[in-house]
């Protein structure tokens, strides 16, 4: 690990200030991706601004037809929250599938979303549920937030503060794990609710999470498992690696979507 300076402010405004200071500052949320990356010297930052002490960034609140989750809420807190389980069980389920228990105890929703790993679960959760990402500057819809592999709409100095999820009528997340990393080889969030029918796919796309519009269109007509067609995306846009070729991933998208719909409608 290269050396860096470290701060852990209690106020968001201080974090904003610190994030604007120095050569290459970065935010430290749960650190479950950042710290291993630094350890392997794959990245170098002049300073880490730890968000861990900012109370305003934590907590889970049901606000009417919406669930608001603070950015520094851990996967474990989401997975074990009665509020989340009552409002959007699919989200509890998804959070409970991230990494392993120890990673869930540290990793946060804000960190995961900001990192936008193409195989992470939360991006599918956000896009598939039509979430809104709140930052210190603005609100960004999930549709606009995930720009590409490890790329988001976040600007320099922008900090995710919370995420809002509209409570869907039904939603399910089904994941096919990579046998080695247990990240999603393909993960599909299917939901039906105020933001329509959404089918978001993680783990498969070259450019990260995406919506499978062909499957959405079919489900629009008939929201049953048997109506799920083959994925509409071109294999050229899907990842191929030593674990899974694009055609297998494409196949799994439909299978996972079908299983998600079956679970949602059972």
């Amino acid at each position: 690990m290269y050396n860096f300076t470290y701060s852990n402010p209690e106020m968001l405004s201080d974090a904003e200030h610190l994030l604007g200071t120095g050569e290459s500052p970065t935010l430290l949320a749960g650190g479950q991706t950042l710290l291993p990356t630094l350890k392997l010297r794959l990245a170098q930052h002049s300073s880490l601004v730890d968000l861990g002490r900012i109370v305003a960034l934590k907590g889970i609140v049901a606000e009417g037809s919406c669930l608001r989750i603070g950015a520094m809420t851990t996967h474990w807190e989401v997975a074990s929250s009665a509020t989340v389980a009552a409002a959007i069980p699919a989200l509890s389920q998804l959070a409970g599938m991230i990494g392993d228990p120890q990673v869930r105890h540290r990793g946060t929703i804000g960190g995961s979303v900001a990192n936008n790993d193409p195989s992470a679960d939360y991006p599918a959760g956000c896009l598939g549920l039509g979430a809104t990402i709140h930052t210190n500057r603005r609100d960004i819809s999930a549709d606009d937030f995930f720009v590409g592999m490890f790329e988001t709409a976040l600007e320099n100095g922008e900090i995710i503060t919370a995420l809002s999820f509209p409570v869907p009528e039904v939603a399910t997340y089904v994941k096919y794990p990579n046998p080695a990393s247990r990240y999603a080889l393909v993960g599909v969030m299917v939901s039906k609710g105020v933001s329509g029918i959404r089918v978001a796919v993680t783990g498969a796309g070259n450019a990260g999470v995406f919506r499978d519009t062909a499957i959405e269109a079919a489900l629009q007509k008939n929201f049953v498992a048997d109506a799920v067609p083959e994925s509409g995306v071109s294999e050229d846009t899907l990842m191929s690696d030593m674990h899974a070729a694009a055609d297998y991933r494409k196949h799994l998208i439909a299978v996972m979507a079908r299983r998600a719909v079956a679970a949602a409608t059972s």
């Binding site: 852990n8 430290l28 650190g31 710290l35 350890k39 392997l40 392993d100 120890q102 540290r106």
Partner: peptide, 29 residues
């Protein structure tokens, strides 16, 4: 390991199991 997967470094911080290879000492202050 160096990818926080093997778990031989698990300890409890405030009673919760975590991977001590993926947490800074300063974070345990």
């Amino acid at each position: 390991c160096d990818t926080s997967q093997c778990g031989v470094c698990v300890v409890h911080v405030d009673g919760q199991s975590i991977k001590s290879c993926s947490m800074l000492a300063v974070q345990a202050d």
